[in-house]
């Protein structure tokens, strides 16, 4: 059995986001890039499944659509324990183009289980997993919070309003995973870090695919306005501020 984990290269979650070119482009200057946290949890669960499988799961592969600058992130996935990696050498334009690029590669060499994080922490589209399953014509399960394999059967659970839903499925399928799938992402060991460069990172040339999305402008949330302190004795000032400045009375 083979598992594929889709990983996205995203800015560190503590990054201060800035835009350039009249707010039409994300400023990548000085950004530290990481594995999308949801994808990292997917990878963590995939590695646990391999360890628990007594050899039934032979290989964990990670796949990424990105240019060469996403390789450090891919190698981190290899250092954590993925066996090999595929990088499709294209800029990830939008969910459709990413899913289409990956589908093309996966069709040629199918996997039993494909895992994708529920969303990427940068664009939060929640689209790639579902689109990819459609391109591949395989079932997908969304919001998966646990995934266990027992022989040929796969048991999944997903969070639903007010409770949990347990499902069974057979391979191949795609799991769109969320919080709960694994507790903490793994920290790579020295050995893992050393091995990462020796593991195969195969670069695949992209197909021609149009992006279906055009980003017109980005907007940052308004900075929080400063809190004004009013002396409790000075009700007149408070009313004046609420009336003239906040304009809510």
């Amino acid at each position: 059995m083979k598992i594929l984990v889709c990983i996205s290269n995203v800015p560190d979650t503590t990054t201060k986001i800035k835009f350039v070119d009249n707010n039409t482009k994300f400023d990548t200057n000085g950004i530290q890039w990481i594995i999308n946290p949801w994808d990292e949890l997917a990878l963590t669960r995939a590695l646990q499944l391999k360890e628990e499988s007594n050899g039934a799961i032979e290989k964990i592969t990670v796949i990424n659509v990105g240019l060469i600058d996403s390789e450090p992130t891919i190698r981190k996935a290899l250092a954590i324990g993925a066996d090999d990696a595929i990088r499709i050498n294209a800029e990830p334009l939008d969910a459709y183009s990413v899913a289409a690029q990956m589908a093309e590669v996966i069709k040629k060499d199918p996997y039993d289980i494909i895992m994708a994080g529920i969303e990427s922490s940068d664009y939060n589209g929640s689209l790639v997993g579902g689109m990819l399953a459609e391109f591949l014509d395989i079932p997908s399960v969304s919001s998966v919070s646990s995934l266990n394999i027992d022989g040929g059967n796969v048991e999944l659970s997903r969070e639903i309003s007010g409770g949990k839903e347990i499902l069974e499925t057979k391979v191949p399928f795609l799991a769109i995973v969320q919080k709960g799938i694994a507790i903490d992402p793994r920290i790579p060991s020295m050995r893992g870090i050393m091995m990462a460069r020796k593991k195969p990172l195969n670069v695949s040339e992209p197909i021609e695919v149009d992006s279906l999305t055009e980003y017109s402008v980005y907007e940052l949330p308004k900075p929080k306005s400063k809190c004004k302190m009013v002396d409790p004795e000075n009700v007149k000032e408070l009313i004046d501020l609420l009336h003239n400045e906040a304009k809510i009375i």
Binding site: P72, M190, I193, R197
Partner: peptide, 17 residues
């Protein structure tokens, strides 16, 4: 190097987590 940064991050993650 990439490896050096990865080790720094691994140590940071373990310490802070």
């Amino acid at each position: 190097s990439e490896e050096q940064l990865m080790i720094q991050q691994a140590a940071r993650d373990y310490a802070q987590r």
